[in-house]
């Protein structure tokens, strides 16, 4: 069972580790934490409470809290999409506003199409390395060497905080089996 306290502590630790703050409006914060708790009970992972999740780990992976969009959103807007994590300026101002959605609409649309179909497609894609346009590819951070297998490179390197431009593909190397 996931308790609200567990969710809160996890968020607090994560905020601290990344130099963020939690939403200064305690009522609003309580709502988001409760949303995360409900989603974790429901899906087995804390899917973003302000987005619609499919309920399949593969398809929801980018919106598992802290989502892929948090770091660039806090950087650009001072808050993540749900306004769970905020930067120090937003925290001090004590005022929160909705921010635009960065996640591609195609991803959310999957919820409304046939779930079985999408899952099959994504499982197929996970095994396909050669078609970079539809499948996942290996990216590496040229600054610190972090490697990630995704549809697109991360916005920010989770290890060294390098920008997206620092990521390069290593797909072709795999195809030929190295040298």
């Amino acid at each position: 069972m996931t308790t609200l306290e567990m969710v809160r502590r996890r968020a607090e630790l994560d905020a601290k580790a990344n130099g963020y703050f939690l939403n200064p409006d305690s009522e609003f914060l309580e709502n988001i934490l409760e949303g995360l708790r409900v989603n974790e009970e429901r899906f087995g992972y804390p899917a973003c409470p302000c987005r619609i999740a499919v309920g399949s780990f593969e398809l929801d992976r980018d919106i598992i809290c802290p989502c892929d969009y948090r770091d660039p959103d806090v950087q650009d807007y001072g808050a993540c999409y749900c306004c769970l994590y905020v930067d120090s300026a937003t925290y001090e101002k004590g005022e929160i506003h909705p921010i635009p959605e960065r996640r591609l609409p195609e991803k959310a649309l999957k919820v409304f199409s046939s779930i079985e179909e999408e899952e099959k497609k994504s499982q197929l894609m996970a095994g396909v390395v050669e078609d970079a346009r539809i499948g996942r590819i290996l990216f590496y951070c040229r600054q610190c060497g972090y490697v990630v297998f995704r549809e697109e490179p991360p916005y920010i390197c989770p290890i060294c905080r390098a920008k997206r431009e620092m990521f390069s593909e290593i797909g072709p190397l795999l195809e030929t089996g190295g040298t």
Partner: peptide
Amino acid sequence: ALSTCGWCKR
């Protein structure tokens, strides 16, 4: 709305 979302509640 979403039952879990803060802005929906607002």
